[in-house]
């Protein structure tokens, strides 16, 4: 029963990792952009939530109403006026630019908020749990995070495959010139894709801040978990990314159960093993 508990907690944790990963997956899938600053944007969203919560006295969950649109706009502007200019046949410029943004973000956050670790408290929600049986109880907050993760992936899947905008995303990602011939304004489409990715980042950041302690330096580790989830799942597949997040979460939980010091390492090992046997991930997109 202990193990059932471990796996359930791992799955729930995986929901958060999937959320970290979805934004990355979107950016890579549509723009072929590898965003090194992804984790730092998650942390930026955490701090934005902190500011909103402390200055307006709102509950962390309600802060989403402000943080999500804010990150959406930041994403749009960033892509439209900066990152689009770095995209091309060479993949190095966007790597360098986002690497630079990562360093800038960490330092600005350090300057403004200090290195003190922070946490957003959701009050009673923090400790609320549902008792399933004697040995298994599920935290309400982790459950909310997990359900949100699944809902985000489902929603994006719908957007991608069932709407006109999603069709334009896929077409532009296939062939930019030909998309232009159809009337697509590529810079706008890419900016919208980044805006949507950043909206997901915002949700991930707020939930991160509610689930764990954070400080300006925790971004790169979130980036790493996100990367691992994306690659385990297979590049460009959203359900794969969710599966990747869950696998990573379970691996970490099982590792921690064996020995608390093994949590992170077990995740990396499972990632490597999957990479060895399935270099393209578990559910790779058929066309690339």
């Amino acid at each position: 029963m202990d193990w059932v508990n471990t796996i359930v907690q791992g799955v729930l944790l995986g929901g958060l990792y999937a959320m970290f990963a979805t934004g990355l997956s979107l950016m890579f899938g549509i723009m072929r952009l590898v965003n090194i600053a992804h984790g730092d944007f998650i942390v930026l969203a955490s701090y934005l939530a902190l500011v909103v919560v402390t200055s307006l006295g709102l509950s962390p969950l309600i802060s989403l109403v402000i943080v999500v649109p804010l990150m959406f706009v930041i994403g749009y502007v960033l892509q439209r006026y900066l990152l689009n200019k770095t995209l091309g046949d060479d993949i190095l410029p966007p790597l360098l630019v986002t690497f630079g943004m990562s360093i800038i973000l960490q330092n600005v956050l350090l300057e403004v908020f200090s290195a003190d670790s922070q946490k957003l408290s959701a009050g009673a929600l923090d400790i609320a749990s549902i008792t399933v049986s004697d040995q298994l109880s599920v935290g309400v907050m982790p459950l909310i995070v997990f359900i949100s993760g699944v809902a985000i992936v489902g929603g994006l899947q719908f957007l991608f495959y069932k709407t006109e905008l999603g069709r334009a995303f896929r077409a532009t990602s296939d062939d930019q010139d030909t998309a232009r011939l159809m009337g697509v304004n590529n810079s706008h489409i890419f900016a919208l894709a980044m805006a949507i990715a950043m909206a997901v980042v915002a949700i991930a950041g707020v939930f991160l801040a509610m689930r764990t302690n954070f400080d300006p330096t925790v971004g790169p580790a979130r980036l790493l978990y996100g990367f691992e989830a994306v690659i385990i799942g297979g590049l460009g597949s959203l359900w794969g990314t969710l599966a990747g997040g869950i696998i990573l979460g379970v691996a970490q939980a099982v590792g921690a159960q064996i020995d608390p010091g093994w949590q992170i390492m077990t995740g990396h090992i499972v990632f490597l093993v999957i990479l060895i046997f399935r270099p393209r991930g578990l559910f790779p997109r058929s066309v690339d």
Binding site: R167, A168, R170, A171, S173, D175, T178, A179, V287
Partner: peptide
């Protein structure tokens, strides 16, 4: 220059 990840109908709709 068809869009490879789109179906025939989706190509037309584009």
């Amino acid at each position: 220059r068809l869009f490879p990840s789109l179906s025939v109908e989706e190509n037309l709709l584009m």
